[in-house]
Design a protein around this nucleic acid. Structure first.
Lengths: 329, 329
DNA sequence: TTGTAGGCGTTATCAG
DNA sequence: CTGATAACGCCTACAA
């Protein structure tokens, strides 16, 4: 019932505790003979090195903390999967902390701060002063999909603005001039980059009208907000949505609430390329984010920074890949 | 850069280290005066108690490990969200370990075993002997959606069999007699419970034919496998799918690959009630699993068992809620 | 109410 | 190649 320690193994194997320790780290200086005996005894006793004691002395835990909003967890689990797999490959563990709508961030930060974590990956806004606290402790920080202008904070993100510009080109090129952007929540930096990128390109091209509609981040919010918008302002020629969930909501509003055809009456574009986007129900033109790749890149940045803590901050910008489907001409 | 310790705080505040320790545990026997001073100094120094050192001496870490397959992570993130939120509420941390298709389970088990975790929640098959190792260490284990016949292993699951029986009643009651079950992968115990429950009820009712079609677990697999099946065996009257993703695949195969109408030509039922199931694209009759509630219940069981380690094993069976929609008559 | 001291299970440095 | 032994940072009797 009590967990066996290296002392227990040492006693049973007739060696010193330090010898057991060495055997479990493949320290090198160990005769094959004692090595085998120690491992045999350990297996019999069910001994596993105590990661906590190891972390205490090494001052690092092999654990990486990931802070994400529950919305991200529910709608982009692929990012988390990518991170998790990359961490497995790197022999590190994942401490997952979810925050509800940028709320209870404080608790997550405190939690992460109590551990000697090898690194922090954050997909949620944790605030500048919190960021500073991690950096002050020498904890490498990687920001997901959000630029952070700060020394030693690496960043991995889809190039939202450029991709949104391509979306703008596509629609503009099709002769459309009257646009609506479903921005999602106002405080989402990611969504803002997308919408701003779209608008910027439209301004360059000239002669287009771009309206904005703010809403919650999800399907239902998008569907309702869009319906309410068009009730007051009429039908735009095309709708650019800050994410696919919003786009699904808009499409369903068009077809099922308003009786409009897509793309004949209105074109719709999303962002993310969730699996559903490609399916017959939507065939949504959207921008693919390489979710798994984002996860892998984040771990790559982390590992590099652990090796070179003072290296200049890097940003890995992954291109978004425009997927043309039947929701646009 | 070096993390401040309670000694640093003690020195700066002019008290003993043990006093600092007490202040951070609200130990009681501390004068409000020193308490305030210590906290002030700690804040200034940026001191946070080291969870690792605490875990070492307390022999528990306030960390709960969760082992799930990557498929679960991607398709049922709500369960994980529920667990995460319940853990937040309970003041515990989540160590997330994903395994790919019941593969690399060994690594996850080793990882979890190295920590003095407060409990283990597993949604993946980790094997009987591994289970035994955790139990031998007195680590509470909760199994998700999978019955485990073992003393002290608690379990929280949807009542798959009963719910599947209700599905059978619904279809049988509509006069249908020729069924196909999309089982998903053969080795999935959860899916098996659902399909078995469906078949059992059909046997009770009598006069029905129930065929099975094995496939992978996801949308594409279901869509392809169903199309291949009907090419050889013709059209069933109704299809019961072991999960919603399979059902979406089947529905799209029917409408877009085969040109069949739902439910006129074939009825389709799923299991899970993912958000998409309710949307106009599918309107899928399915069984709602209370994902968040599953997560909460798992933590509840864990907390209870930590308080009473030797209590008899409990199973929390959550009823599945049949959602009748337009994919059935 | 506060201080002293031993121990939690490792790793790592020195000797031997 | 192996064995002592001092940390690592905190908790907790016990003593004052």
């Amino acid at each position: 019932m009590r967990r066996p320690t290296s002392y227990d193994v040492a006693r049973a194997a007739g060696v010193a505790q330090s010898t057991v320790s060495r055997c479990f780290r493949d320290d090198g200086g160990i005769s094959g003979d004692t090595r085998a005996r120690v491992h045999a005894v350990a297996a019999e006793l069910g001994y596993t090195p105590n990661a906590v004691a190891r972390s205490l002395i090494l001052r690092r835990s092999n654990v990486v903390a990931l802070i994400v909003t529950d919305f991200t967890l529910r709608t982009n689990p692929h990012v988390i999967d990518g991170i998790s797999q990359a961490l497995n490959a790197a022999g590190k563990r994942l401490l997952l902390m979810t925050v509800s709508g940028d709320n209870d961030v404080a608790g997550a930060v405190v939690g992460a701060m109590e551990y000697p974590i090898d690194g922090l990956i954050t997909g949620a806004l944790i605030g500048d002063e919190n960021l500073a606290r991690f950096l002050a402790r020498g904890v490498p920080v990687v920001s997901l999909n959000r630029r952070v202008d700060r020394a030693r904070v690496d960043c991995v993100a889809t190039d939202h603005a450029t991709a949104a510009g391509e979306v703008a080109d596509l629609l503009y090129g099709a002769g459309l001039r009257d646009f609506l952007c479903m921005t999602g929540p106002v405080d989402s930096a990611v969504n803002a980059e997308r919408v701003d990128g779209f608008e910027a390109r439209m301004r360059e091209r000239g002669g287009a009208r771009v309206a904005r509609c703010v809403s919650g981040a999800g399907y239902d919010e998008g569907r309702a907000a869009f319906a309410a918008y068009v009730a007051r302002h009429g039908r735009p020629e095309a709708v650019f949505c800050a994410n696919d969930q919003l786009a699904f909501g808009v499409m369903d509003a068009c077809r099922h609430d308003l009786g409009w055809r897509i793309p004949e009456d209105v074109a719709v574009v999303g962002f993310d390329d969730l699996p559903e986007a490609a399916r017959p129900a939507y065939r949504l033109t959207t921008v693919r984010q390489q979710f798994e790749e984002i996860g892998r890149a984040a771990i790559g940045l982390l590992v590099r920074r652990i090796a070179a803590p003072e290296a200049p901050a890097r940003t890995v910008l992954l291109p978004g890949q425009l997927q043309r489907r039947a929701s646009t001409l």
